[in-house]
């Protein structure tokens, strides 16, 4: 046990909870440690091993090592796992309040008989989002990052151990609502989907370019509210294309359902998506 803060596990504030299963959580080693650090101040968790006697000779080691090498290694491990199990893994990123969870709820409901879904929810606190997802019947694991502003690959790796998604599943990873920090952290996802809503500024893509630069698809949500807000769709797309000319767009409203078919078609067009068998002639995308 740490003698400074009394925590019984690792140096961390991150917890992972499988919703609907017997309550369990685990502490992570990793970046969530920084919250612990800020909260308790600098302190040692273990006694360092005595160092060998130095000869006093200086040595410069030319590392040329990526600072995020450890995260990227974990991300590659996740990617290999997804590939081996034919899992389509989507990293959903956005500002808070863009409607990620509402979009997931509707998608999981509408496609529940066509595809198998599993969800990883990332939030600083609470299991509220995971509870909403669990109500759709999809398996879900909640990662609480404490004060952490993003998910990292190691958190996802550990969440996958709780989730244990079956082959041919679509794994939706709802990142922490934050348009800055999650951009830097590869989770091993198959594709990154950035969501903006028309209640935000249409200049968001160039104010927060990193996220749009690293995404493959941009969902523009809440378009049912367009008559009431000053949001120019074409201006927003133009800004986003300056950052990432290859970005695809789908305009939709997760609340009223407009445009959801286009999003489902995009999902169905992903190479790893395998539909659940349905009798010939009875197939329809949405009920």
């Amino acid at each position: 046990m740490c003698t400074t803060c009394g925590c019984s596990s690792h140096e961390d504030g991150v917890s992972i909870t499988r919703i609907g299963a017997e309550h369990q959580h685990q502490h992570l080693s990793g970046w969530g440690r920084f919250w612990h650090f800020l909260w308790y101040g600098p302190h040692q968790h273990s006694v360092p091993a005595p160092a060998a006697v130095s000869t006093g000779e200086k040595k410069t080691i030319h590392l040329e090592q990526d600072i995020l090498a450890k995260n990227n290694q974990s991300a590659q491990r996740n990617r290999g796992y997804f590939e081996a199990k034919n899992i389509l893994a989507l990293n959903l990123v956005s500002s808070p309040g863009s409607g990620k969870t509402a979009l997931l709820e509707r998608t999981l409901h509408d496609l529940r008989e066509k595809m198998n879904f599993a969800v990883i929810e990332g939030d600083q606190q609470t299991t509220q989002d995971a509870d909403r997802i669990a109500a759709t019947g999809a398996p879900v694991v909640q990662i609480n990052t404490g004060q952490g502003c993003h998910l990292d690959a190691d958190m996802v790796y550990r969440a996958l151990h709780e989730l244990r998604p079956a082959e041919d599943t679509v794994v939706m990873i709802e990142n922490v609502g934050n348009l800055v920090c999650p951009a830097m952290f590869d989770l091993g996802e198959t594709a990154r989907v950035v969501i903006i809503s028309v209640t935000e500024g249409d200049d968001k893509p160039i104010k927060y370019p990193d996220m749009f630069h690293s995404a493959q698809l941009c969902l523009i949500n809440k378009i049912d509210l367009l008559p009431y807000v000053k949001f120019d769709l074409e201006r927003a797309k133009d800004f986003a294309r300056r950052v990432n000319p290859n970005l695809e767009f789908i305009e939709l409203s997760a609340t009223v359902g407009t445009g959801m078919q286009s999003w489902y078609q995009w999902l169905l067009a992903r190479p790893r998506v395998k539909l659940n068998p349905t009798p010939v002639g009875t197939y329809s995308l949405v009920h």
Binding site: T55, K59, L63, E64, I67, L68
Partner: peptide
């Protein structure tokens, strides 16, 4: 054109470390 590829400036690297050798 906005079809440009960033070729430099995305680096985040530990270039070198100097320590006292044993």
């Amino acid at each position: 054109s906005y079809f440009v590829q960033v070729t430099q400036g995305r680096e985040l690297k530990i270039k070198s470390i100097t320590l006292e050798a044993v």
